[in-house]
Each structure stands twice: as C-alpha cells, then as structure tokens.
Design a protein around this nucleic acid. Structure first.
Lengths: 234, 234
DNA sequence: GTCTTGCCACCTAGGTGAGAACCT
DNA sequence: AGGTTCTCACCTAGGTGGCAAGAC
C-alpha cells in the first residue's frame, strides 16, 4: 500500500484549487527546484462526501454514495486518464463509497467492475478514431476483500477499492481488470446479497439476481498507457 | 509484509543444518565480515510438511497439520523464544497449517489464539522464578483474514498466520495477542463452523459450539522482550 | 542484576513517473 | 508520429535486530 508523494505527480493545484501540502521528512524538500512536481494525491478535497449516486436498479432502499466526488469531478472536467500497464496499475483517484440502507444482519458482497462507455477509440488530441466491439467481452469482477460482510459492518466504514488494478494485458492471470487502451470506461459498484447457493469467492461473474448496481458520471475515464494530457503529466 | 534478510538474524545453520541462502541484490554482500549474520528465515526446511496434530476435540474428521514443523522442532530443542513488543511483533516461525476433512461447501472461520502452558514465571538462565495467575485472562482470538471461507477453499491452500502480532501491552487496542513476558505459551488453531446466528467478525471470543481446537507440542515458546539466548541473538 | 523500552539504521516489497527504446 | 513497453531510480510503509538507557 505504498503511496509515494512522488507518485501521482500531478498538478493538484489546478484541480483542487490550493497548494498541495506535502510531507518534508528530512532536509531534502522535493519542492526545491522550479519545475517541481506536485503530489497528485488529494490534499483535503477527498474528505468531502456526497455525490449523486445513479442507481440502476432502484430496488430496496440501498444507496451508494461516492466519496471524494469533488476530486473526481475536477479530474473529469479536464478529462480523467487512467494509466494501465501490463503488470496492472492502481486507479487514481480510487473508487471509495459509503453504503446505506442495507439490512444490518444480512450478509453482502460488494464488488466493482469497469464497463465501456462507448465503442469509440480515442486518438491523440482526443479525436475519435475508430470503433471497437466490446460486445463479446465480459468485464472482470473485483470483489471487495472484506466480502462477505454484514450490512451493519459495511455501512459503518468507507468502502475503498484502492487495491484494484487495471491492466491492458488480455492474458492477465492475476485477476486484474482488463481494459483496452485509448477507450472510455466507467466503474460500477455492485451490492450483492449473499446467497447460500453459491460461493461468490469462486465466481468471476455477476449472479442473475440479488444484485444492485451503481455508477457515477464523474468517475468516467479514458485509459492510456502513458499520460497524454500534459496538464496531467507535468 | 516485509521480510528482510537482516530481519530474524539467527543462526539458522545450527537449526536447519545447512548454509542459509541469501539474496545478494547488488555488490554489497551482507555476508562480508567474519561476524556475519544469517537469516533467521528458513531456507528450505519449511517446505517439508507433516506434523503430529494433537486435536483436542476429535469431532468429525477434521485434521490440522502443522507446516514447517521441522523448523519448529529445531527451535523447540534449544528453547523457542518469541519477542513481544509494545507495538506488536510477528512470530517467527509463524504458524502455518493445512486442514483436511472439512465439508467442501460449508463455511468456516479459522482462528488462532495463544494460551499459557503453565503458571510459572521464567527468569534468566531459564530458572523458574515465581507464579502467575492466568485464570482471569481471556486470550485474544485472531481470526484468519480469509474467514469466512468454504471448506473447499480452505483445504486447497496453506493457511498462514504470519500477520499475527504478539504484544506485551495490556492496553493494546489493535487486536494483537496480549501475552506476558517470560512466560511459556502455546498457540492453538481453531476451526469454527459458520453459524448464521452470529457474526464472528464482531466477536472476540470463541463460541460454545461447533469449534474444534488443535495445538502442536513443538510450537510452545517462551515470551521475551529481547532475545535471552545468545544462540538466537548472535 | 535483570528485564524492558525507546530509538535507530537498515532492509524489503511494492507502487510510481519519467524517459528511452520500440513498434507499426 | 503516435502509442506501447521496458527499465530505472525513487519513494514509502512497515518490519527488524541491536544497543543504550531506563525501570524494577
């Protein structure tokens, strides 16, 4: 779980509207030169909760609320890019949610997957440059490691998917989420009531019933293998 | 999960009967001088399975087999010491087991705790030096993080408790196992059938039914805050 | 004296962005 | 040229033993 300050180098200032605070462990301040890098890690903005949860199946009274939506929104304004690598790369920002309206004593799985937003292929300067057929690809499901867990416990904590990794390696065998570069995607959060008939831990795909799915406009992103937008890389 | 080679400095040779292999990442070999340290990490010995599992409740046909028992035995011969600190210290060796005879589709929790072997207090040179009343202390339970899980899945893997931490801080609030220094203890492994009536994740102590407990003679150890036996420290 | 604690330098695993090299 | 892959130095979190100072 290493979050380096050098990691996520990014002009946070532009996104968060204030100087990024950083740790200065010893004398060597990383912000010495003129062309200093700023931590892409969110300084404070992530603390603000609230977000519009667009549920797909309004079933029961389950609500899912995106955390850090403020940060997501600022990225979204300039076009969120997610790096994908062969070995798998974590998302930044990561998807973090709060869930409400679960039955306290019932057991649930919570999972995430990532689905295509359109069939276009994006090219430099973000011009559309071709079509891709996603129809035959079943997206990989990443089950939150705390699953299964009682509704009570889920609701008491912020549910973070910061361990999810995105890869462009179609042969990936580490369970990472497989995406194609230069395409637009959107993460979805699934709340799945436990069913004694199956052991979801063994299953790769969503069951047919008892699933509620949520997604958030502002978490849409484009996959890249290196930052394309110099606003993001410098 | 950092396992440094410097960590666990220990005369493995004496215990394992052969030179410890170590990584030499760059030019600086850590084994340069005469008073070189050897990795307390087990080179090969841990691979050998088999061990005498002394079940307490012979119930069903559940068997628990200690992994790395060879290593444990060698430590045991010279007197296993476990360091405990205020912040919590991992065990070395760690408890690793294989389980057999579970019902494949049933859900189980697997947990570990550590109980006193006697009421004596050991003093330097391992002379007995007083008595301690353990009777009022309920040992803390460490539930394996994969719990709950189907019998099938448990049986397919080696179950490792290498994240367990031992502490001498009676006020510990991080869930570590609390022990008193200079006492003799023994780890126990518990196999617990899931019961929909309780959410074990919330519970600190063992339920009354559906528990099977196993322990292993050779995993007995004495707690210290610094190695007493110079065979171990140098 | 004996044991405990705090502090320290050290080590590793794993995540990261940059830039070079490499396709196509 | 545009996109991808590889390699690299770097960073942090967290675990570790040794030692000196402290406590009993």
């Amino acid at each position: 779980m290493a979050l380096s300050s050098r990691a996520h180098a990014f002009s946070v200032e532009a996104l968060v509207g204030r100087s990024a605070k950083r740790k200065v462990p010893d004398g060597r301040d990383e912000e010495t030169g003129a062309g200093c890098r700023q931590s892409r890690r969110a300084p404070e903005a992530e603390k603000r909760p609230k977000a519009g949860a667009e549920s797909r199946e309004a079933g029961a009274g389950v609500q899912v609320e995106l955390q850090g939506s403020e940060l997501w929104r600022r990225f979204h304004e300039i076009g969120t890019e997610m790096i994908i690598t062969k070995a798998g790369r974590r998302m930044f920002p990561s998807v973090r949610v709060k869930v409400k309206g679960l039955e306290p004593l019932k057991q649930y799985y919570i999972a995430i997957d990532v689905v295509p937003v359109d069939s276009k292929r994006y090219s430099s300067q973000w011009m559309v440059a071709g079509n891709t057929d996603h129809s035959c690809i079943t997206p990989r499901l990443y089950i939150h490691p705390d699953s299964p867990c009682s509704g009570e416990t889920w609701m008491r904590q912020i549910i973070s998917f910061d361990r999810v990794k995105l890869t462009n390696n179609e042969m990936d065998d580490k369970g990472h989420i497989i995406l194609q570069s230069m395409h637009k995607y959107k993460p979805r959060v699934h709340v799945i009531a436990q069913d004694s008939r199956f052991d979801l831990a063994q299953i790769q795909s969503l069951p047919a019933e008892g699933v509620q799915t949520f997604s958030f406009q502002e978490t849409e992103f484009t996959t890249v293998t290196a930052y394309q937008n110099q606003q993001l890389a410098a």
